[in-house]
Design a protein around this nucleic acid. Structure first.
Lengths: 200, 200
DNA sequence: ACCTGAACACCGTTCAAGT
DNA sequence: ACCTGAACACCGTTCAAGT
């Protein structure tokens, strides 16, 4: 009905992402719906579809932000350290970020994109930047290792850590005598890196 | 309206699970809805709620079956082999099972249960049986390792492999120069075990 | 005791109609 | 050009009413 010129396209874009972030932090990932986002910013649901193809695209934009934050967290903590301490600080920063109460982390792996299409460039860039940071840290521990091998290892670690934090962080392993998420993540990373050292 | 005595409670239970399995295999995980299950077995949606608390419980029962099948697959392949070949066969069996086209595998990590309650015993048993099998295989490669340590490592591997297969199996890593899921899984398992050997 | 089916309170997404 | 809000085609779950 009414014409709204209160916000430019870019302002609206930010409004949507900010509202979405607030929703998941206050009410959890399952509360993130088109109708609730719209109501929170005072627009109708239809308006969202002028800016985004669908809800999944909003999720993807939020996730891009999350990757940036995780990058920043790791980067800051790792900065001043060397060698093994670098690895310790990385894993600590990562674990801190992936607390199951961190709804943004939960959202990061909720996204399901259609099988036929690849992830958009702006998302891939964020992910690559983070993977490259992990690779740099690994490289400092494995000086003899080639770049291709290091990149591969960084990706293996990234996926593996995700598995541990999503399974053990939720209570999917309750009652099966698993140790804590932190112990599992540290076991993974130290033994994996140790194995790489041995191989290299 | 009509009273149905066509099926006993147990028969109905199996009907529901079989129909659910058919639905996900034919139409994918997202097609698994109460209404579709009910229509496929010729009952009304409400009937499902006599047998199950909610849809998630149906998912959990399907997943218990899936864990049994995965156990069987690994058990059969691994049986005749020893040492390193045992590990090779395990990972091959696992990778074969976790093809992204395997809807039952996809469903395995779709289940979200409420944070306050733990997984039911009948589910935990299936998972423990599988984890114990993995532990046995690890034990044969790491004879000096204590049982508690082996169990821990089996759980780390289980979660890590899940991470790799769910991230790299979908196209979440397209465009970031990742190698194949198989290469990543093998890198994980060989280097992790190698690291454990070095530590033990 | 078991089953129905209408009802409730939601979804994502579209699109004619308005300004 | 942008926004609305009703509409469409769905959800999970409940529960009075029927047999």
């Amino acid at each position: 009905m009414a014409r709204r010129t209160d916000h430019s396209r870019d302002e609206l874009f930010d409004l949507v992402l900010n509202a979405s972030q607030q929703i998941i932090e206050l009410e959890g990932v399952s509360a993130l719906t088109a109708r609730r986002i719209a109501s929170r910013i005072g627009y109708s649901p239809g308006t969202l579809y002028n800016l985004f193809d669908n809800i999944d695209e909003i999720v993807l934009h939020l996730n891009a932000r999350t990757l940036d934050d995780l990058y920043q967290q790791i980067f800051e903590k790792v900065d001043q350290s060397t060698g093994r301490a670098k690895l310790d600080r990385m894993i600590t920063a990562y674990l801190q970020f992936t607390q199951p109460t961190n709804q943004r982390w939960n959202l990061l792996f909720e996204h399901r994109h259609p099988n036929n299409q690849t992830l958009p460039d702006w998302y891939q860039e964020r992910l690559v930047r983070l993977l490259d940071l992990i690779a740099t840290i690994l490289q400092s521990l494995l000086p003899g290792c080639g770049e291709r091998e290091i990149n591969h290892s960084a990706r293996v670690l990234w996926c593996s850590l995700h598995g541990i934090c999503s399974q053990a962080g939720e209570n999917h392993l309750d009652g099966v005598n698993a140790r804590t998420k932190d112990e599992m993540a540290r076991s993974l990373i130290y033994n994996y890196v140790s194995g790489l050292k041995r191989a290299g």
